Computed example of a mutant assay.
Amino acid sequence: MVAVVPTDRIEHRFANPGLLEQALTHRSAGAPHNERLEFLGDSLVNLIVAEALYVRWPQADEGALTRARAELVRESALAPIARSLELGARLTLGPGEMKSGGHRRDSILADALEAVVAAIYLDAGFEACRARVLPWFEAAMAALPPPHKVGKDAKTRLQEWLQGRQKPLPLYALLSESGEDHAKSFRVSCSIAQPPIATEGEAGSRRAAEQLAAEAALRQLDPNY
């Protein structure tokens, strides 16, 4: 079969264009749909991203690599890539999904992206697949925080910093709560005994306020942590 020159942002010449057609067909449109390709693509995306992180972060431990991979391959990270490739406009959906805006739904877009990755792999092999797919993740990889921070919120990092130095854990206290039920504001303090530090955070939820207070404490203790 003659290779098909790409006219879209996927930029892969499919020797078997039927693979791409199947990858972009949701189960609501009937068989053959993309669920089997999605299954294969999920593993391929995990492998491609894991290998790239392994090379990029030679000193990172398994935990940091695992958290970074999870950040990069979760649904909310894959869907924007699918949008950048304009997959939504090319999806084949059943009438119900089409009417409900399925072509804009994160879950459907992320699944389609994984299916497209599998289609490229089956069409051209792993090396060609990796060469095409890895650049899609470069911007997100470059935006990752340092390995010791990735996937960890401020409260977790503050606790680890203190425990690593055998210091007492911080205490969080609600200082005030204001506003209507639909627009609450919480002000929270974070107190550390050794070294003596007290910070505050204010946000629309108590949890978010605690995170801000912990982040402020970390900036005082160790701006690079």
Rank of each mutant, 00 (worst) to 15 (best):
K149V: 03
D106G: 13
A110R: 05
L85R: 07
M98L: 15
T92Y: 03
E127H: 10
L113Q: 01
H103T: 10
H103F: 13
R130I: 03
A70L: 12
R104Y: 14
G88V: 05
V150F: 01
V150W: 00
A110Y: 05
P146N: 10
G101L: 12
K99G: 13
S100I: 14
K149Y: 06
A79T: 07
R74V: 07
A70N: 15
G151M: 07
M98T: 14
R67D: 07
R90S: 09
E75A: 12
I120N: 00
A77I: 11
K152Q: 11
V116N: 05
T92R: 14
V73K: 03
E71I: 11
A79H: 04
Y121H: 13
L122W: 03
A89E: 14
R74T: 10
A89Y: 03
L72D: 02
A128E: 11
A112P: 00
G125C: 07
R130P: 00
L144R: 05
A115G: 08
V73Q: 02
R69A: 02
R90Q: 13
G101F: 10
I81Y: 02
R130G: 02
P80A: 11
A70E: 14
D106S: 15
L122D: 01
L113G: 03
V150D: 00
P80C: 11
L109Q: 05
S100M: 15
A110G: 12
D153G: 13
A77S: 15
L134G: 03
A119S: 09
P135C: 03
V73Y: 06
H148E: 09
S76D: 14
R83W: 08
A128D: 09
V117S: 03
D123Q: 09
R74Y: 10
H103Q: 15
P145S: 11
F126H: 12
